[in-house]
Design a protein around this nucleic acid. Structure first.
Lengths: 172, 172
DNA sequence: CGGCACACGTGATAC
DNA sequence: TGTATCACGTGTGCC
């Protein structure tokens, strides 16, 4: 609890001045990168900074989340040979809530009915569907569907469902 | 330049205390949502906040940028016989004289016209064709064609021709 | 001891 | 005129 010598006191004043100046500059810098700043007093800057930063973090979280789900495609082959007669092939693409399904398979009785039943069970509303005969025994089916609200399904589950319930395939 | 009455002076002290307390709380709140904070003094908090916020903004910018370009980035193929390029994907099947072409690509002006021209040049007569929009930027095109008499072309040549003349892709 | 960071009370000032 | 915010110098404590 000793008093300061005059010289030390002066140093102290200068140091404190410097510190304040640094903080002031930081506040200015901060206010420049926080958009939509209404008031410019320090408390408002801090408050708005906190608010804005939480928004940013949430946004990043959402974007990174959606990055995983959106553009995916998975293809299933029951044969590693492409052009083999009678090979089943399933391709599923998902973007946002849109689902594009491609099935290349042998003709089977009642298959098209099972397709639509399966779409319903997957909570996919079919917006467009195309069946092309390819050769005497094969079909090329294209389905454009939309995920129903609250539904979030991935490529793999769709492929699995089609394999089991539509093409009657037990093994992958 | 009037002095304050003693009562006012006391009020002033209390108000200033309150203000300081508020700022202190804000600094604490801020420090809690800025990850990886090394030092906890106010200048460091502000500095690191600025730095971290710039990173966040950059990250959001990048993520939103990439969100437009991605469609192919996360696409997965288990077949090396398919040709993936950017977001374009071409699949060709041939059986006897039947040819089934699947193209998944970005929308391009004049592309559909070039498709039909190319089919002609390949001596493929188009028996069926389907264009499905997939999301805001992509198209799914299915073409069922028949080789004209005396024509014998293979899968690879068709893929090449589509890449170069329809999708304007130079490299395979 | 010096260097640093903080909280405090105070006067000035803007609306 | 109150009711805010601000900058300042100072005292105090912590490595």
């Amino acid at each position: 609890m000793y008093k300061r010598s005059p010289l030390q006191a002066q140093d102290h004043v200068i140091a404190e001045r410097k510190r304040r100046e640094k903080m002031g500059d930081l506040f200015i810098s901060l206010s420049k990168i926080v958009p939509g700043l209404k008031k410019l007093d320090k408390s408002s800057i801090l408050g708005d900074t906190i608010e804005y930063m939480k928004e940013l973090q949430e946004q990043v979280k959402l974007l990174e989340e959606s990055k995983k789900n959106i553009p995916s495609a998975l293809e299933y082959n029951d044969s590693n040979k492409e052009h083999v007669l009678g090979s089943n092939k399933i391709k599923v693409r998902i973007m946002d809530k849109s689902v594009l399904i491609n099935i290349h398979c042998n003709k089977q009785d009642g298959m098209l009915g099972r397709v639509l039943v399966q779409m319903e069970q997957l909570h996919l509303s079919v917006h467009d569907m195309r069946i092309m005969p390819f050769g005497p025994t094969n079909l090329e089916i294209s389905i454009l569907a939309q995920m129903e609200d609250g539904c979030c399904i991935n490529v793999h589950d769709i492929v699995k469902a089609i394999q089991i319930n539509i093409l009657d395939l037990v093994n992958n």
